[in-house]
């Protein structure tokens, strides 16, 4: 469903992405990990065209992201994205956050959009928070609203960019639980995260990146059993020793 071929990107002379190729099939959950600055966030943002890339091709559901003729807003509306810092709109309530794009992008009736928002908030265990503003919610609650906001668009795939990195430890679980459920329901997901417990539980494949390149792309068992590259071994030993 999502296919990257030879994607490279430079900031001036600095290469952020080096010839990255990978594919994510329908219903697959792929975890992307690696040290900070390895380009994993940039890579995931290339998939929905939030970051332009210099070389290579990315196709989502057969549509080329880098093609200047592609209707990017339309393509983006079909791919959900969850950010590290939640990025809820602070001037709108949780409910309005979820309604906005349904109305303005998908053209849904307000009543239908509200019903959908309420259903999703209920699924997230946040039904009673619909009328609250983001500032009145905890980080974990905000991130679950953000997930609901993305799901409201009925996306064909979801991208997660370090969804738990900005959260206090006790809130990480409530967000991961939601993501695990999504994965089990068969959602196609690309998840940039350091949560190896999550990867172990639901990932089909783990992609390891370093210095802009994909060093390893293996199924979960192979990756956690015996990563082939030294760098991935070193990375795993560092983040798994606690």
């Amino acid at each position: 469903m999502i296919e990257l071929t030879g994607v490279s990107k430079w900031y001036g002379r600095f290469q952020v992405l080096a010839n990255c190729s990978m594919r994510i099939d329908k219903g697959e959950v792929v975890v992307i990990c690696g040290p900070s600055g390895s380009g994993k966030s940039t890579l995931i943002k290339c998939i929905n065209g939030l970051e332009p890339f210099s070389k290579g091709t990315i196709t989502v559901d057969g549509i080329s992201v880098g093609d200047p003729g592609t209707n990017l807003p339309k393509l983006r509306s079909r791919i959900g994205m969850v950010f590290q810092n939640f990025e809820l709109f602070p001037h709108m309530t949780a409910g309005e956050n979820i309604v906005l794009a349904q109305q303005k992008v998908l053209g849904r009736e307000r009543a239908a959009a509200k019903t959908k928002a309420f259903e999703l908030l209920t699924r997230m265990g946040l039904a009673e928070h619909a009328a609250k503003y983001p500032a009145q919610l905890s980080g974990g609650q905000q991130q679950r609203v953000a997930i609901a906001r993305a799901l409201a668009m009925d996306p064909i795939a979801m991208l997660f960019d370090e969804p738990t990195s900005a959260l206090d430890p006790e809130m990480i679980t409530e967000v991961l639980d939601v993501m695990v459920k999504l994965a089990e329901e068969g959602m196609t997901m690309a998840v940039v995260t350091h949560e190896m417990g999550f990867a172990r539980k639901v990932a089909d494949r783990v992609v390891f990146m370093d210095q802009g390149a994909i060093i390893e792309d293996a199924n979960k068992e192979a990756f956690f059993g015996t990563p082939r590259s030294e760098r991935a071994q070193l990375f795993l030993s560092k983040i798994l020793q606690h």
Partner: peptide, 13 residues
């Protein structure tokens, strides 16, 4: 915040 623009764009606005 720049992230707000990214979030709006990501929704297809």
């Amino acid at each position: 915040r720049r992230g707000q623009i990214a979030a709006a764009m990501a929704l297809g606005l």
